[in-house]
Structure formats: C-alpha cells, structure tokens
C-alpha cells in the first residue's frame, strides 16, 4: 500500500527536527570552540562561528597536554578491548566445545556474576588492592582489572552454539587440534562479533571516568576524561571556548572508531538476536 504524500512529508519533518535536537548540542559545542572568550561571555549568547578556532585548539592542546592524554586513552582502550576479546573468546570456546567437564557450571556462574558487581560495589577494596600491588598511577590499574567480560563470554558462546556441528566433525576427522580449530575456523567466522565487541569496549574504556579519577594522579597516565575536567577551574571563570575545543578533540577518536565500525556493529547486534 502506498503511503500518502502528506504522511511522508510529516515523517521527514519529524525526523529533521529530531536530528536537529539531538545534534544541536554538538554543533553548539563546536561553535563555542571557535569563539574568543569575550564572545563566549557576551550577552545575548552568540550562536555563530568565530575566528578563534585555531587559537582555541592550539591553546587546548597545549594546556591539557592533549597528545599525552590521547595516547594514554587510546592505549588503555585498545589494550583493554583486546584483552577482553581474547579472554572472552577463549572462555566461550571452552564452555561450548568441551562437553561437561567437572565444575563447568560453577565457573560459568562465576563469570556471569561480574554483571552483579559494578565498580561502586567494590571500589574501596579494589582501590586498596591497587595500592597494595603498587598499581596506583600505572596503566596496570586502568587495564588488567577490566579484562574479564561476562558480556563477551555470552556473546561468543551464543555465536559458537550456532556454528554447524558438521564443521567440528569434519575437523575432528581430519585430526585437527582444538586450538587449531579455534584459530583457523571459529575466529575468522566470528569477525563481526569481534568488531562489534571491540567498538563497544573501546568507547566504553575511553569514556570511563570514576576509576581513572581515583587511581591516577600524574600526567604520565592521565586520560582524556580527567584531563578535560582539569581544564575547568573551580574558582575562576572557565574559558569555555578552550574547554569545548579540547572536548571536540577528545571525542574524535571514539567517534572515528564508531563510524568506521558502524556497519559491522549493527550487523553484529542483529546477528545476536537471530533465534
């Protein structure tokens, strides 16, 4: 049945307004990042592009030591995402292909339980543990405690359960070892799941705030989120133009990761729900 023309126009109008509402904060942030400080504080507030773009971005980069912040955030995000994926794949593989080995259910529940233990529930002892291990203010604290993932194990387990048995049988007849089967058959097959998980985890770690706030102190390991907060003075008038410039720089990496992987992300999610 053909939709009425007026309905179509209405839908487009609705979507254009929605897109504007959702995107406006970002456009506005960019506009502020091009103004000079007098324009930022002028009344009525300006909704326009200024001439101060290059100055603001240079200032933001230097004042926050942005190069180091970006490196640190990228480093911990990649390491954590890769660590999570590797550990999830190997655990999921063990849960699906090795029959009912003793203790299987308990181990599975132990991994699932991580969902019930978000950071605020264990933050004081975990912090003390980092202190005892000498991990405060190091990359270790920002990466290793996050390597386990119930989500990842469930995701790969569910996917492995849909892999046709004939594949496994054929490889068993050929005398292929389990690790060989995992490496040359399963991992290539789960590419889109890996990509989806990588995207989610990269953005997740990049945007983490509370944990780096309590475990890091020095510029050596400081991440983007914390560096940006430190640009906001508590006792003086914030230079919002410079802060917005830093914010725009700081959101580009997760945005790029997201955009390049967007397609596989949506596919990966869609696949999960196949019955």
């Amino acid at each position: 049945m053909k939709r009425k023309k007026s309905t179509t126009i209405f839908i487009h109008l609705f979507l254009i307004i929605s897109v504007f509402l959702v995107s406006f904060p970002i456009i506005y942030a960019f506009m502020v990042s091009t103004l000079n400080v007098n324009e930022v504080y002028s009344s009525p507030p300006k909704l326009q592009l200024g001439n101060n773009l290059i100055n603001n971005y240079r200032e933001a980069w230097q004042r926050s030591n942005m190069g180091k912040l970006l490196f640190n955030s990228a480093f911990i995000s990649i390491v954590t995402a890769v660590g999570k994926i590797a550990l999830s794949i190997s655990a999921a593989f063990a849960f699906v292909y090795f029959g009912n080995f003793p203790g299987k259910n308990i181990l599975f529940v132990m991994i699932l339980i991580t969902h019930m233990l978000p950071l605020p529930i264990r933050i004081v002892p975990t912090y003390q543990l980092m202190d005892n291990l000498g991990w405060l203010d190091t990359y270790y604290a920002l990466t290793i405690p996050f390597f386990a993932s119930a989500t990842g194990v469930l995701l790969f387990r569910q996917f492995y359960m849909t892999v046709p048995e004939s594949l496994l049988e054929a490889s068993l007849i050929d005398g292929i070892t389990p690790l060989r089967f995992l490496w040359s058959i399963l991992i290539p097959l789960s590419k889109s799941n890996i990509v989806a998980l990588f995207t989610i985890e990269f953005i997740w770690v990049w945007n983490q705030y509370l944990w780096p706030l309590v475990t890091t102190n020095s510029a050596r390991v400081r991440v983007v989120q914390i560096g940006l907060k430190m640009l906001i003075p508590s006792d003086a008038q914030p230079e919002w133009n410079v802060i917005m410039a830093a914010l725009i720089i700081g959101v580009i990496p997760p945005l790029l990761v997201y955009l390049t992987l967007q397609k596989s992300l949506v596919e990966g999610f869609a696949m999960q729900q196949d019955k």
């Binding site: 655990a91 080995f101 390597f147």
Partner: peptide
C-alpha cells in the same frame, strides 16, 4: 579437558582477584 580449564583460567583469575574478592572485602 585440561585445555578447557586452561582456556577459562585467565577469566576466572581476573574475576576472582578484581571482582569477587574485593566485593567480599566490601
């Protein structure tokens, strides 16, 4: 079977050390 345990071990070590144990400490 030994391989299954080896494959699961890293996850379990992380979960126990950084999630379950600190939660009990809480």
């Amino acid at each position: 079977h030994y391989l299954a345990y080896l494959l699961i071990a890293p996850s379990i070590i992380i979960v126990t050390t950084f999630l379950i144990y600190p939660s009990l400490q809480s």
